[in-house]
Design a binder for these strands. Structure first.
Lengths: 223, 223
DNA sequence: CGGTCATATGACCGAGCGGTCACATTACAC
DNA sequence: GTGTAATGTGACCGCTCGGTCATATGACCG
């Protein structure tokens, strides 16, 4: 946790420091991210930084914690419109809100994504925890869908959870690629608003795939 | 490209250096990987390293090139058993060989994987190229499957290619997770041989999902 | 043997890093 | 004002990095 000094900072300065730190850890992995660069960009002395944070790891943990906190807030702020919706509609909502978060906080999302892929000091625990929780949650949804007959009974819940997990992990990057966007250069919010129809179409096609699979049902059928 | 000196090295020494370099770049991203650590582990002088490679980037490029070359070799050495097989069988083969490569060369595969995710000096070009090529190839397969009636006509080829791409990207890590393996600690070849049935089962379930999707076809049907 | 050329070496360089600390500056209580 | 506590500062430390280079070693040739 940052020291009290950090939270006593005027909001403007605190936010500047936070944003610059997020950017640094979005652009570099933990080892390569540089406190010296952050303080230089922020225009503060190196010593001042260490009045706010115990060390580099303290800052990094704080960024990840904030990322999780903001995402939770975001999910709560965008609840599913209908609690009785069917599973596919719920999955659409789940993925959509995840994408929206990535659009609202692309740099912060990148820090978290990097933490999951690259080696970071807390990687083994964090990565394992997040993957396990994500797979468990999606697996639960699938099992529920099987139980109430929306999904076919022979579906392997773990396999399905994995595919959903893989898709949700890659979806954001893929959409950016398809829309020709770069979160370094583009204003995502504006760009996505402009290309919303195209994005929605791609998204729908992917969700349709997950629902019906690839096989031509006129010849084969679910096992 | 390495200098001639490197290729003149006795094979044992050359292989040791190569393996240690692969390990270093598998465990660290480009910036964090250390030439000093490699030469220390190899027991050679720093100056000697620079008789073999022009600089750090030269070594890194060589590792990636070797990774691609070895994978190509591997694919050629394990061709699909039947050139007239249907698309699903072909996809199973494609993914299976990718997994086998990852088992045979886990560290080298990790270097390449890291190059695609983290920021590396050649990342923007490489990542874009490999993703584009992978998506294009899978998209072509899907279009072909649609044309010959194996896949249903309304399937969006790009969306399908994306899901296949995402799954193939995550599949290796997921299987290791499900089997409780760690390529740092375990002898993958031996472990996978021992747990082959379990691995095969998980793999089959995932492929079945891709084929038939999730929906209960007794109620809904392909669009 | 001597001569030549490829290779091996490690001290060394400048730079950047995370982190520290003695000191300067501010803010506030009285 | 004066005293005190909180905050800001940047020179500095020890370390590691990628990379260089003068020099040493050894292999091959006549």
């Amino acid at each position: 946790m940052p020291k009290a000094t950090f939270f006593n900072l005027p909001e403007e300065k605190r936010k500047l420091l936070f944003d610059l730190a997020v950017e640094e850890f979005a652009d570099n992995d933990y080892e390569s991210a540089s406190i010296s660069r952050i303080v230089a960009k922020a225009g503060i002395a190196k010593g001042s930084f260490y009045q706010y944070f115990a060390d580099k790891l303290d800052l990094y943990q704080f960024l990840l914690d904030e990322g999780i906190r903001l995402k939770m807030e975001f999910l709560k702020a965008h609840p599913p419109p209908d609690s009785t919706m069917n599973l596919f509609a719920y999955l659409r909502w789940l993925f959509k809100v995840g994408l929206d978060y990535q659009i609202m906080h692309p740099k912060l999302a990148k820090v978290a994504q990097r933490a999951l892929y690259g080696r970071s000091p807390i990687q083994p625990q964090l990565n394992a925890r997040i993957r396990t929780e994500s797979l468990a949650y999606l697996g639960g949804l699938v099992r529920q869908g099987i139980a109430n007959g929306q999904l076919h009974a022979d579906l392997d819940a773990d396999a399905a959870a994995f595919v959903l997990h893989a898709v949700s992990k890659e979806l954001g990057d893929y959409l950016m690629y398809r829309l020709g966007l770069d979160h370094e250069k583009d204003d995502l919010l504006e760009a996505v608003r402009r290309q919303n129809n195209e994005a929605q179409h791609i998204f729908d096609q992917i969700m349709t795939f997950l629902e019906f699979g690839m096989v031509n049902s006129k010849k084969g059928n679910a096992p």
